[in-house]
Amino acid sequence: MRWTVPNILTVLRLLAAPGVAVMFLYFNRPWADWFALALFTVAALTDWIDGRLARAWGQETRLGAMLDPIADKAMVVIALLVITGFSGMNAWILLPSTVILFREVFVSGLREFLGDTAGTLKVTKLAKWKTTAQMVAIAVLFAKGAVEHYLGMLSLGMDDALFEDILAGREEDVFGLRWLDFGWDVSWYGGIGLLWVAGILTLMTGWDYLRKAWPHLKEGGAAT
């Protein structure tokens, strides 16, 4: 076991995955949203950095190869559970999240079943794009949670008609509600769009892995 810098970054990313959920246990919103966003973003960046460093420094190890996909999956799965819970099980988030979670479990099961032949399920460029889309979507949705909290807090108790007049520009916008509303629209629709793109890419990569594994599945089964 070699504790290289890339491996240390991978382990830190793995530890950061549950930390995203812990933010909502120890901090009130919107601070929890901001801290979760910061932790998730920094951890996601290490996914790109540790791979670059490992290749540049010739420090690719079996430990890193094993932990790297586990850390990525843990980050995505835990973050999606948090976002789904705080979204009130919104169908626009729940459906692509379900697809993503199902695929991750399914492919992990395939790799475990294939054992020594799991090398046929190598990470493809499409799978890397899938992971990138997932992480960007999750970061945007965490930002949406923070903006939504500010918008709700500053408009609390405000008459609906007055709120609409402020957004329409007919009343003075003392609290910057128009900018917050714009930020909410961008982060909500942008996050949802990216999450659905990630869901589609997830399906495509899952099908690709199943297609590659199918010949091995037909040759005979492993004991259960």
Rank of each mutant, 00 (worst) to 15 (best):
K130F: 04
A137Y: 02
D165G: 01
H149E: 14
V140R: 00
D116C: 02
D160W: 07
T132D: 00
S155V: 09
V147T: 11
W129I: 06
E104Q: 11
F106N: 06
L156T: 06
M153E: 14
A143K: 10
L154M: 09
L162D: 14
V147E: 06
R170F: 07
A127S: 10
W129Y: 15
L126Y: 04
G157F: 08
H149L: 12
K125P: 03
M158K: 14
V107D: 03
A143R: 11
D160P: 14
K144F: 12
G157E: 08
M153K: 11
L121Q: 05
G109Q: 10
L110Q: 02
R170Q: 09
F106S: 08
S155W: 02
L121C: 03
R170G: 03
K130H: 05
G152M: 14
A137S: 15
H149D: 15
S108T: 06
G169Y: 08
R170L: 11
L121S: 03
G115K: 10
I166W: 00
V140H: 00
F113S: 14
M158S: 13
M153W: 08
V140M: 00
V140N: 00
F142Y: 11
K128Y: 04
D159I: 00
G119I: 05
A143V: 14
A137E: 01
A161Y: 04
F142K: 07
G169H: 08
D165Y: 01
K125W: 11
K122S: 14
M158Y: 10
A127W: 00
A137G: 09
F163H: 11
E112N: 12
G169L: 09
E148D: 12
E112M: 13
E164F: 04
M158P: 09
T132E: 00
V147I: 14
I166C: 03
A168T: 07
A133S: 08
R111K: 15
L167N: 08
A139Q: 02
K128I: 07
A127Y: 00
F142L: 15
Y150G: 02
S155H: 07
E164P: 04
L156D: 13
Q134D: 07
L121R: 02
L151Q: 13
E104D: 15
V136C: 10
V123I: 08
V107Q: 02
E148A: 13
K122M: 08
F163D: 04
D116G: 04
K125Q: 10
T124L: 01
T131W: 01
A127H: 01
G145S: 09
G152V: 12
A146D: 08
L141I: 04
V147P: 00
K130Y: 05
L121D: 03
L156K: 15
G152S: 14
G152T: 11
E164L: 07
F102Q: 05
V105F: 15
R111H: 13
G109F: 09
I166L: 03
L162G: 01
K144E: 14
G109D: 09
R111D: 13
F106K: 06
H149I: 13
E112S: 13
G119T: 05
G169M: 09
S155G: 11
T120P: 02
S108F: 06
E104W: 07
R111F: 12
A118Q: 11
G169T: 10
G115E: 10
G145L: 10
F142N: 06
L167V: 06
